[in-house]
């Protein structure tokens, strides 16, 4: 059984996303309620710190994808632990998804499609994604 962990660049990708999103939110809200800009800025700053420096590092530390001979096991969760088992026979196909930011850091997310459902993973190294996709393909 081989276990894949998210690399450090995944954390940077998510930190960039959250920062950009919050900055955009502040900019849009400033347009409408300029009087409360300072409050908005402070709230966004707190949110950015909580997500970027506390939650995401903890989330990614708890995240792992294991591939054995018969299934893919995804473990996640900071407060509530989740374990998803996807047996290969039930799997239809795997799909790689990569945004522009993720591409810059050579990481990409994986969508594992099973009958009537799909599971999206966090970004892993491109090589790791290729290995998992190969494992899925090999089983078919």
């Amino acid at each position: 059984m081989k276990t894949y962990l998210p690399p450090k660049s995944t954390l940077i990708v998510w930190q960039i996303r959250v920062t950009v999103l919050l900055a955009l939110l502040v900019a849009v809200l400033y347009w409408f309620i300029a009087d409360y800009f300072l409050v908005l800025f402070c709230v966004s700053l707190v949110l950015a710190v909580v997500f970027n420096l506390i939650y995401f590092p903890a989330f990614l530390r708890c995240y792992s994808i294991s591939v054995n001979q018969n299934a893919i096991i995804i473990k996640s969760g900071v407060f509530i632990k989740h374990e998803r088992i996807l047996p290969f026979p039930r799997m239809i196909y795997a799909e790689k998804q990569q945004t522009l930011v993720a591409k810059a850091f050579s990481v990409s997310a994986l969508v594992l499609r099973v009958a009537r459902a799909a599971t999206l993973t966090v970004e892993l190294k491109d090589n790791d994604i290729a290995e998992i996709m190969k494992a899925v393909a090999k089983w078919q």
Binding site: I92, Y93, E95, Q98, T99, A137, Q140
Partner: peptide, 22 residues
Amino acid sequence: SDFIEIYLGVVRRRYANIPINK
């Protein structure tokens, strides 16, 4: 002979590898 590979998307690039028998 066994797979169809599909590449699509610009901002969100997607790559799907679908086995023919699926």
